[in-house]
Design a protein around this nucleic acid. Sequence first.
DNA 1: CGTAGTCTTGAGTATCCTCAACGAGGGTGG
DNA 2: CCACCCTCGTTGAGGATACTCAAGACTACG
Lengths: 222, 222
Amino acid sequence: MLPSTMERPVPTRAQAAPCIVDSAAGIIRCRRGQEICAQDGPVDNWYRVLKGLARRSVVRADGRRQILDLLMPGDFFGRSARGGDAFSIEAISDDTMIACYPRQRVEALADRDPRIAHEVRELAFDAITRLERQILILGRTTAREKVGHFLLKLADRWADGSTDRVNLPLSRYDIADYLAVSVETVSRAITALQERGTIVVAGPRRIRIVHREEIETEEDAV
Amino acid sequence: MLPSTMERPVPTRAQAAPCIVDSAAGIIRCRRGQEICAQDGPVDNWYRVLKGLARRSVVRADGRRQILDLLMPGDFFGRSARGGDAFSIEAISDDTMIACYPRQRVEALADRDPRIAHEVRELAFDAITRLERQILILGRTTAREKVGHFLLKLADRWADGSTDRVNLPLSRYDIADYLAVSVETVSRAITALQERGTIVVAGPRRIRIVHREEIETEEDAV
DNA sequence: CGTAGTCTTGAGTATCCTCAACGAGGGTGG
DNA sequence: CCACCCTCGTTGAGGATACTCAAGACTACG
């Protein structure tokens, strides 16, 4: 078991579409677990994931970690200079590639070229959409719903050819911190979904969604 | 009780700072509860709250409502044309004023004027910061923490002169749907915070934060 | 003055968290 | 090759927390 899905290249979305602002980028290559940006670093950069998977997380004072955003190829993010909140960004899969732009430089580029401004705007709106989806998942009541919809979302974004086969690129711990539940609850939820026949678990990192509609209509939708 | 806080003008943040893109705006005036934008409407508009308070929410199939974003003066939001998710936006307080911009028109303006592009970018980043904060609140474990930090956030944004006196502009039901807990739990959490001496409740819509640090350091911070 | 909406509290149940233990897999060093 | 360690994943038991259903107090409003 544990077929080391992380080492294999991911079929779909393995590489982000090229992007105009990449002209101003430096490329960062990361191994699994490597920190891209410290929680209290002073730098003011924007980033875009080119390949792999990364997490943007906050560690609270009690040691609990909250993953704010899962970053897949094409995803854009910044440190939101204002706000005072500081995040740390770490690669989840090996060989994660991230483009890094100094904020001021991109701003300058955007001021000169409307196409770049447009692109940055679109990337920001994508980020908003992502965060809204995350809020919708966090707003669900039971852990089974959270995990189920997380799997659906992952299947859509991290498709393995068909959209019913999910190669989980992250650990149960990451899922737990992303959904704001405990690891044990994630594990139990997956087991419960399997026992109901909603999903089939072929190894901890290999899940097949059999009855998508059972997740979607489990006493609520949207 | 219920001193009808909603009818009184709010001292701080009652009016949003003027904004360049407002030149392209139509102004919408709403009464309390009035819908600004239907959940399945076809229009592709951007909005900015000028005065009052509004909520952007999703109603799930089971009737449960989730408030994605609380919109205060200065806040910007769109219907995120892509994504498929549809939201409905309603005014919470009476005499809420909202600027409404056709998306294409603002895009055209932004393409011509870098200052407008910059402003839209900043507004989008503000929205991202807002949503991230909301995720951090939703990620907390106990309802007491959620409600406590919600009050802190509201005190900061909706200050009544000093930042320890909060005139709740929204009902317990709105708070519940915003924090993804039941109304009863919100009520109990407020009662619990009062019994601990952390806050003082002077009427359902009037709360004073006495020991801010007790909320912030209640087994976690950030 | 009755109705509707808001807010609170109680009782019982369901869910989740914590602590704990155990198994499996991967890597390292002998 | 194997012992060892470490991380990951799962399962169990007990306690804490939140949800549901219910009822009551209060306010606003017609």
